[in-house]
């Protein structure tokens, strides 16, 4: 529960609380055991025979269902944050995300990228990358400055380009959007 409120108040991805999650699953199983024990005490499934035990078992049931929903909501929200990260910053996780994400979450992130790529390739017949051009294109080419050495890359329209630190290029924005999202290229005059 505390982990959920930390996630709620944080804008990024907080550290994955392995211990708390293990504890929460253990509590859920314990609640289930407790509920089963209480149900066995009720003769012939007649809830009216021992109303105090029936009520207690019902409370256990609601508690475990609630805890389970919290766990699903917690993990689902973390997945959503990873998905949103991909759409905003591309397929390379930042240092803080890499540190705080669990191994399972890193795997989920990779699978999600592959899923989007697969969808993008099969959605329509023309060559379309749905992860680029999030804003309406104003001009075909943009004046871009290289902030971080990228090296030589092949671009469909212009062929091979050496994206060396501090160099300036006129390039099709959609072709290099992954570098712009990752902060390796910036649009000049924007």
């Amino acid at each position: 529960m505390e982990a959920l409120s930390i996630l709620h108040s944080s804008k990024v991805l907080p550290e994955y609380p392995t211990y708390e999650i293990r504890q929460a699953t253990k509590d859920i199983n314990d609640l289930h055991d407790s509920m089963e024990r209480k149900l066995k005490e009720i003769p012939d499934d007649d809830a009216t025979a021992k109303p105090e035990i029936s009520a207690s078992a019902l409370i256990d049931h609601y508690k475990l269902e609630r805890s389970k929903r919290v766990l699903y909501a917690y993990h689902d929200e973390r997945c959503n944050r990873l998905e949103r990260y991909f759409w905003r910053h591309g397929n390379e996780l930042s240092e803080s995300f890499q540190t705080n994400a669990s191994k399972q979450e890193t795997d989920y992130f990779k699978n999600y990228i592959n899923l989007i790529e697969e969808y993008s390739q099969n959605a329509v017949e023309c060559n379309l990358d749905i992860t680029t051009t999030m804003e309406p294109p104003r001009e075909l080419l943009a004046k871009l400055r290289v902030i971080e050495d990228i090296g030589e890359v092949y671009l469909p329209d212009v062929g091979s380009v050496n994206l060396e630190k501090n160099s300036v290029h006129y390039l099709k924005k959609a072709d290099v959007e992954q570098f712009i999202k990752a902060g390796k290229l910036i649009e000049m005059g924007s």
Binding site: I28, N29, H32, L71, C79
Partner: peptide
Amino acid sequence: YKRNHFKECFTKDLYDSL
């Protein structure tokens, strides 16, 4: 993917009925 992710993270540690 979502189901497998939940499983890897926590549902594998829950009783099957849960």
